[in-house]
Simulated scan of single mutants.
Amino acid sequence: MTQTEQAPLLSKHILHVWDTELTATESELLLAYQLLAPAEQQKANRFVIAIIRQRYILATAFLRRILSHYLECAPQDVCFRWGVYGKPYLADDTNIQFNLSHSHDRALVVLTRDQEVGIDIERYVARHLDVLSLADRFFSREESCALLTLPAEDRLIAFYRLWTRKEAFIKATGQGLSFGLNNFTVSFQRDDWDCLLSVEDSAKLARRWALGPILQVEPDYTAAVSTQGVIQAVHYNRVK
């Protein structure tokens, strides 16, 4: 990582987002593989498709490098524990919270302190995706109706904006898909931190969280981040 020699200040209500490209030479891929824990290496070895295996290795190594930057330790020495629903946390008593997401050849890591956080990135694909059927199946009624009002050519981008914002929120809660994608409503139109409109039909519950887009990602991607409480600032860094 070449962005800075010293770990930047990280505090509650301040988010640090790190963005990287998941491409590497064979020697770089080998070095990344060596940073992984034995269980992570075993998981990588189980991927049959080479590009999926490569992206997993690079994303996991990227996460370890970022965390080691803040913890001031070697990437190999970063240890994890997992919540009830599988969300990863740091194994020690540090107050650093983090989350990782990757899609195709890009990965994002978000960090903050003392508050749960989640992030998601998706690349726009499947131009002929039946977004209305998917929305009817998985999204809230309000979200499905909002998509239906759009011209057909605008629905794909709106769908992905909804999806990433919903994924970021459920990842922040630590409950993942068990929370239920139709139990809350987000906006694909807003570009501020008030994109979470309601949780279980309650606007009051929604105000306990911040949710919004990460606008600096590549044009073929959309991304979002969510955290407990408020967001005072987001520091975005793109690294090799």
Score class of each variant (00 low, 15 high):
residue 27 S to E: 15
residue 69 H to P: 00
residue 83 G to W: 07
residue 26 E to C: 05
residue 55 R to Q: 15
residue 109 V to F: 03
residue 33 Y to E: 10
residue 17 V to R: 02
residue 84 V to S: 14
residue 81 R to V: 12
residue 58 L to T: 07
residue 94 T to H: 10
residue 13 H to P: 00
residue 14 I to S: 12
residue 59 A to W: 10
residue 9 L to P: 02
residue 98 F to E: 08
residue 20 T to W: 00
residue 100 L to I: 02
residue 46 R to Y: 01
residue 93 D to E: 15
residue 26 E to I: 01
residue 88 P to D: 08
residue 58 L to Y: 00
residue 39 A to C: 12
residue 25 T to E: 00
residue 59 A to K: 07
residue 22 L to S: 07
residue 81 R to A: 12
residue 58 L to M: 09
residue 90 L to H: 05
residue 26 E to R: 02
residue 69 H to Q: 12
residue 8 P to D: 05
residue 81 R to T: 15
residue 33 Y to A: 08
residue 66 I to S: 02
residue 91 A to P: 10
residue 45 N to A: 13
residue 100 L to R: 03
residue 22 L to K: 05
residue 37 A to P: 06
residue 70 Y to E: 02
residue 37 A to I: 11
residue 73 C to F: 01
residue 97 Q to F: 14
residue 102 H to F: 06
residue 26 E to M: 05
residue 22 L to D: 07
residue 90 L to V: 14
residue 76 Q to D: 12
residue 23 T to S: 06
residue 16 H to K: 04
residue 56 Y to M: 03
residue 100 L to A: 03
residue 71 L to D: 06
residue 52 I to Q: 13
residue 99 N to D: 12
residue 107 A to S: 03
residue 36 L to G: 03
residue 103 S to L: 06
residue 94 T to Q: 10
residue 11 S to G: 11
residue 39 A to Q: 14
residue 73 C to A: 04
residue 99 N to R: 14
residue 107 A to M: 00
residue 96 I to P: 13
residue 73 C to E: 14
residue 50 A to G: 03
residue 104 H to D: 11
residue 108 L to H: 07
residue 98 F to A: 04
residue 10 L to T: 07
residue 16 H to Q: 11
residue 36 L to H: 04
residue 56 Y to K: 04
residue 28 E to L: 00
residue 51 I to E: 14
residue 9 L to S: 13
residue 98 F to D: 06
residue 86 G to L: 03
residue 38 P to R: 07
residue 68 S to A: 15
residue 89 Y to W: 13
residue 28 E to C: 00
residue 24 A to I: 01
residue 84 V to H: 14
residue 38 P to C: 01
